[in-house]
């Protein structure tokens, strides 16, 4: 009965950034830092490129978040759900679009400061951003 977490999600997803232009990018674009805080308190600090979405950040750093970003950023699921601090939520340049809101309605552990990671792009202003992950199916079962 145990749900087996799988890396297949990551293998099968269309990477918005391929490895080649990732290396290209690293040379030219500024690097920023983002921290993911898991439900168990574990903090994962990674670097990313300017303009990457949080979904790109997770994929490019091979972070194994259970089922994260299943739809590849096409706004058909809510698995890349992240919870922001109120002040960060307020200073994001864009408010959620209607399509994002539709999916946020379906997000697990939705809060007032929830967003979808695929829609948040990291800019200089957001350097050092810290986001929390909701519990996954696995957390709920264990």
């Amino acid at each position: 009965m145990k749900y087996i977490p799988t890396n297949k999600f990551i293998q099968s997803r269309s990477l918005t950034t391929t490895i080649n232009n990732l290396q290209e990018k690293e040379k030219s674009t500024p690097q920023y830092e983002v921290t993911f805080v898991k439900k168990n308190g574990e903090r994962i600090k990674v670097t990313c490129n300017e303009g990457d979405s949080l979904l790109d950040v997770v994929l490019n750093n091979n972070l194994d978040f259970d089922g994260y970003g299943a739809c590849g950023g096409t706004l058909t699921c809510s698995t890349c759900h992240v919870i922001l601090k109120k002040e960060d939520f307020d200073r994001l340049p864009d408010t959620p679009t209607e399509e994002e809101n539709d999916m946020l309605d379906l997000a697990y552990e939705y809060t007032d400061t929830s967003r979808l990671g695929c829609q948040i792009r990291i800019t200089k202003d957001l350097n050092g951003l810290e986001v929390c992950l909701p519990s996954s199916i696995n957390d709920a079962r264990s």
Binding site: S12, R13, S14, G72, T74, L75, T76
Partner: peptide
């Protein structure tokens, strides 16, 4: 299915 969907889903679903 996955191969096909992965190819076409970005252009067809991006708002």
């Amino acid at each position: 299915w996955l191969k096909f969907r992965t190819k076409v889903q970005q252009p067809i679903l991006q708002p």
